[in-house]
Amino acid sequence: MDLKAFKMDGLGNDFVIIDNRQKITNLTKEQIIKICDRKFIGCDQLILIKKCETADAYLEFYNSDGGTSGACGNGTRCVADLLSKETNKNTINLTTLSGNLKSEILGDKLVSTEIGVGKTKWNEIPLSKDLNTKNLNIKIYDLNKNEHIGGTAINVGNPHVIFFVDNNENFDINKIGPEIEKHNFFPEKCNVTLATVINHGLIKVKVWERGAGLTKACGTAACATAFAAKQNGLTNNKVDVEFSTGKLSISIDHNNSIHMKGPVSDIENIEIKI
Rank of each mutant, 00 (worst) to 15 (best):
Thr76Asp: 06
Thr196His: 09
Ile252Ala: 09
Leu202Asp: 12
Ser98Gly: 12
Lys34Thr: 09
Gln22Phe: 10
Asn26His: 11
Leu27Asp: 09
Gln22Gly: 08
Gly67Val: 00
Asp166Cys: 08
Thr87Leu: 15
Ile140Ser: 02
Leu106Gln: 12
Ile274Gln: 05
Leu106Thr: 04
Thr68Asp: 04
Cys78Val: 00
Ile17Phe: 12
Ile272Leu: 15
Asp240Asn: 14
Gly42Pro: 05
Lys109Ile: 08
Ala80Gly: 01
Phe40Pro: 10
Ile32Val: 13
Leu97Ile: 07
Leu46Ser: 13
Phe6Ser: 07
Pro126Glu: 13
Ala71Glu: 06
Phe61Asn: 00
Asn146Tyr: 11
Gly118Glu: 10
Ile41Gln: 15
Asp2Gln: 14
Phe40Thr: 10
Met260Asn: 07
Asp253Thr: 07
Asp65Gln: 00
Lys50Leu: 14
Lys7Phe: 15
Asn135Asp: 15
Leu82Val: 07
Asn100Glu: 14
Lys34Pro: 03
Ala55Lys: 10
Lys206Gly: 03
Asp37Ala: 06
Gln22Lys: 14
Gly70Gln: 09
Tyr62Asn: 03
Gln45Ala: 06
Glu60Gln: 12
Ser84Pro: 04
Ile267Pro: 02
Thr95Pro: 00
Asn132Gln: 13
Thr87Arg: 14
Asn170Gln: 15
Lys247Tyr: 02
His254Ile: 11
Ile140Val: 14
Asn269Ile: 02
Glu169Ser: 13
Asn256Gln: 13
Asp172Ser: 12
Phe163Pro: 03
Lys34Val: 00
Asn146Ser: 13
Glu209Arg: 02
Glu114Thr: 12
Ser103Leu: 02
Thr215Ala: 11
Ile173Pro: 03
Lys230Gly: 04
Ala195Glu: 06
Met260Trp: 04
